[in-house]
Design a protein around this nucleic acid. Structure first.
Lengths: 340, 340
DNA sequence: CTGAAAGCGCTAACAA
DNA sequence: TTGTTAGCGCTTTCAG
């Protein structure tokens, strides 16, 4: 098997008997080339197995056809499946995806942003809206096209494709309250640099405020892992006034709690009710099925890709797609019952 | 807020009062520059917020510091978590990750390979070893550094970091058989272009061959989704000779079967035993807990990254890391009991 | 519709 | 240790 030197535009040009300019046109704008020449060029490209050199192209055109996404972690299925959907749409548009993960840490996110941009990303997908001023300034100053997912704001300075975390959390809390629960506990992800967690807590508080008989016994925070969530449950149980319902801001946390409860021989929902947030597979699989908030993960990924794509490719035919608010819904399963 | 034109090497050079070459050295090989100049350059870079242009760099050096990974789908947690680990290691080495997904389809994989390479990937992570000749020729002809994960072969022509699917499957099958099960069913992923599924089936057959009382009642194939797996169970149940144990080649499939069984009011493991493969979160969460094969997902991702990294960066100090075989283990939970 | 030629921003010999 | 300079492969005016 022998090794072939990568052909360049010039080689193709020679073979096809045209100038390099024509080849370039033929590749980027086929209509600008006469039919017969196009065919000749095509076949030359194929016999040589020519593939444009990325660097050369990027340098000359100042575009890379690459988009970066920075998500907290692919280990959380909710982001993995959003990312999958995102990637599929990009792929159809012949754009490739660069991936970075922040591990829920704003400073890591900033590093990844720089890294992906220095790799030439034409645009960026970011999760949530809460980031340090430094990061925001950077994005603005360099005029980086970007869209925010997993959140929604009407702030016109930046497009977002997502849902209202606060409203959604309020909705599920109201739902819990409507089942007669008056002593609630919250287990949330670490709030630092995580607007989803913060907003969801606020939403739950909103609901409680409107129902004077109801109160929040405690607000725990933990990482998105089963064991950390289990530890949070232990802390709650050590309180005098045990809650009749625990509202978790993530399915991973809720499931972690359920696993721990099982170890402790507590019965859900008899001993306490519990709700999650995200509706990942786990919520459906755990027993009893987890009552949770369904987040349109895939739709969000797809729409974010589309918005980003025409942010980058200012297509004047299509009306500029602004921020989009998607809706969440409550999925009733078996972890929430009436308080008696 | 105003928009600043991207500074180039020349701008930095002017500010620091040195040549562009020195800046370039300072960035790529700091030791080759005298301390005082280095400091001057550093500060110039910072005040200008200079970021090297990717295209220019790629063109001149013919390296991109980018690695591509093509996985079947991030929707399957087993790949998502492997990818997460892979990305983290790359990130430490200041290499960025390009991601493509093949949706378990060899021709999509080929497209993605081309796409990632044309985006300049210096190397590639691929899943499994079974791919069309066309793809293999392509990789060889262009001398693409790549490593195969999720499989292991001693074939020296290509590094792999993974485990022996056949042996692992044989092991779990033997385990099932040792519990007294004689009528087995298999539910596997679609075999086409999926060596993991094929090998695992072979491994199970190996075990059966060595136990003359045992036989395989049927081999079903389905996509990696709960509903498809449920349908496969329905097919099995319509047979005369119902198996006492169902061996699934993936946790997703096993859980899908369990969900369907619950709908049908069948009791696992009383009505039949079942085993999975992968040990993703789901296996732990489902009730009863799924007995399965633990695949070292994270370790595989990390090691694959390391191998790929020094495949690309021929570091002569370190002995060239060849293929690595990792071990799987059986995780005993509650879906496998003795046949009575 | 096609060709010539001037860069795009950076790196890497080679000189000094 | 530092500077000079010649490209890397492609796109894109501008002429023809």
């Amino acid at each position: 098997m022998h090794l072939i030197k990568r052909p360049k535009l010039e080689d193709v040009a020679k073979l096809a008997g045209v100038s390099t300019a024509s080849i370039s046109r033929c590749i980027n704008n086929p209509k600008k080339v006469a039919e017969p020449t196009r065919l000749r060029i095509q076949s030359a490209i194929e016999t040589l197995e020519y593939m444009p050199h990325f660097g050369g192209r990027a340098l000359a055109s100042n575009r890379t056809n690459t988009i970066g996404a920075i998500i907290p972690s692919m280990d959380n299925a909710v982001f993995a499946s959003g990312l999958q959907a995102f990637q599929e749409v990009l792929s159809h548009a012949r754009v490739t995806l660069l991936v970075g993960s922040s591990n829920y840490d704003p400073s890591q996110e900033f590093e990844q942003i720089q890294s992906l941009l220095s790799q030439g990303a034409d645009g960026l997908l970011l999760i949530g809206q809460d980031r340090p001023q430094k990061t925001q300034d950077f994005l603005r100053k360099h005029a980086i096209p970007h869209v925010l997912a997993w959140c929604f704001s009407t702030d016109i300075s930046c497009s977002s494709v997502g849902f209202d975390n606060r409203k959604s959390a309020k909705k599920i809390a109201e739902h819990v309250i409507s089942y007669g629960h008056q002593k609630l506990a919250i287990i949330a992800g670490l709030k630092a640099g995580n607007d989803r967690a913060k907003e969801r807590i606020l939403g739950i508080k909103d609901a409680v405020k409107e129902n004077s008989d109801t109160k929040i016994v405690t607000i725990e925070q933990c990482k998105y892992s089963f064991t950390e969530a289990g530890a949070a449950l232990d802390r709650i149980l050590s309180f005098h006034k045990s809650p009749s319902a625990i509202i978790c801001t993530s399915d991973v946390i809720a499931v972690g709690v359920m696993l721990r409860a099982k170890e402790l021989n507590l019965r859900i929902p008899n001993d306490f009710s519990i709700t999650g947030f995200d509706d990942i597979n786990l919520a459906q699989v755990v027993t009893p099925g987890l009552t949770t908030v369904r987040v349109p993960q895939q739709e969000m990924g797809q729409k974010a890709a589309k918005v980003l794509l025409d942010l980058i490719n200012p297509n004047l035919d299509v009306p500029k797609s602004p921020s989009q608010e998607l809706m969440t819904t409550i999925v009733e399963r078996d972890t929430l019952i009436k308080f008696q």
